[in-house]
């Protein structure tokens, strides 16, 4: 296989182009490193949500998790509340992380139960359930902003290894796990098989219900983990902190070259998509454009990329 045929190739080209374009705008030679650090830090959050969303999208048309923002808020709020009442040691951190993951698991199971039991399209199921999660978060939060334990705040904002943000290392490790899961495990093949032809997969003996339950649970747990990390990173949970990650998780998946129609996914593209999206926004920022033009150009760029990328796939 030649490199330029890889589905994520053009996404990486675009990400580098955006990096150069932004870098050239920022004054001074030190801008490049700072820009890369910022892109890696903020890109990590998009990568983490994008990985989960990619897994769900891979299962085929209609499979999209719209409850990611609410799950992030709920997990961030509740885990910080739990940690706020503890001493801040290693046990606290572990308890917070575990509680966030458990919340994600619960959300994923609830989402899948709705899809399965009520036989409603996943988009509507996750959308209506996300209202409930959002309410739960509002109710438990009561407008209080609880600070994360200092150790976690330092870890999420720090750069302990090779000057690369810790968050990027975390995201990289998890991405590798996803790559193994998707490309080397039976589970990954089953997910792709369902996305390519659900009926054929079922007839071939793939346990469709169990596999899709697992993908929704994994996606929700990724969202919960992102919520936990984001809350620690930004010094507390906010009710709207997940809002931008709904579009981001889908955009990152599609820009990265995964098929929105399902059955075909790739992990490297998620990184390219995440870095590209962050760099585009900071590029538009550095041009000193107003909020309106910035929003407008972001939208136009996303659509242009999707239009071009899907045309590329139609050829072979």
């Amino acid at each position: 296989m030649t490199l330029h045929r890889a589905p994520w190739f053009w996404a990486w080209v675009a990400a580098f182009a955006a990096f150069l374009a932004t870098w050239s705008m920022s004054a001074g030679g030190g801008g490049g490193a700072a820009l890369a650090v910022a892109a890696l830090t903020f890109g990590s959050f998009s990568v983490l949500t994008g990985l989960g969303q990619m897994l769900v999208i891979t299962m085929g048309p209609g499979n999209t998790d719209l409850s990611i923002p609410a799950t992030m808020t709920l997990a961030g709020t509740l885990s910080l509340k739990l940690m706020g009442g503890m001493d801040g040691g290693a046990v606290t951190v572990l308890a917070g992380l575990l509680s966030a993951l458990l919340i994600g698991m619960g959300v994923g199971i609830a989402n899948f139960a709705l899809i399965r039991l009520l036989r409603i399209p996943p988009i509507i199921a996750t959308l209506s359930a996300s209202f409930l999660y959002q309410s739960l978060a509002i109710w438990s939060n009561r407008g209080l902003r609880i600070k994360p334990p200092p150790a976690l705040a330092e870890f999420t904002t720090g750069r302990d290894l090779l000057g690369v943000p810790n968050l990027a290392w975390v995201a990289l490790a998890i991405s590798m796990g996803f790559w193994v899961l998707l490309n080397l495990s039976g589970f990954g093949r089953r997910v792709s098989a369902i996305g390519q032809n659900a009926r054929a997969a079922r007839l071939a003996g793939v346990p469709v219900a169990r596999v899709s339950a697992a993908t929704y649970v994994i996606c929700a747990m990724m969202a919960a983990l992102t919520g936990f990390l984001l809350a620690c990173f930004s010094g507390g949970a906010a009710l709207n902190m997940g809002a931008e990650f709904l579009l981001m998780s889908i955009a990152v998946t599609v820009i990265g070259g995964s098929s929105i129609a399902g059955g075909n996914s790739n992990v490297p593209g998620i990184w390219a998509g995440a870095l590209f999206m962050y760099l585009i926004v900071s590029m538009l920022n550095s041009y000193g454009l107003g909020a309106g033009v910035r929003l407008l150009s972001t939208g136009v760029i996303i659509i242009a990329i999707v239009a071009v990328a899907s045309g590329r796939k139609a050829k072979p």
Binding site: L247, V254, L296, I302, I303
Partner: peptide, 23 residues
Amino acid sequence: ARQLPAIVVTLGMSFVWGGAGVL
């Protein structure tokens, strides 16, 4: 014409409409 996913295109367009509205 390009067989694009409507979810993604409209999600992108929500930025365009929002930006135009702010302008």
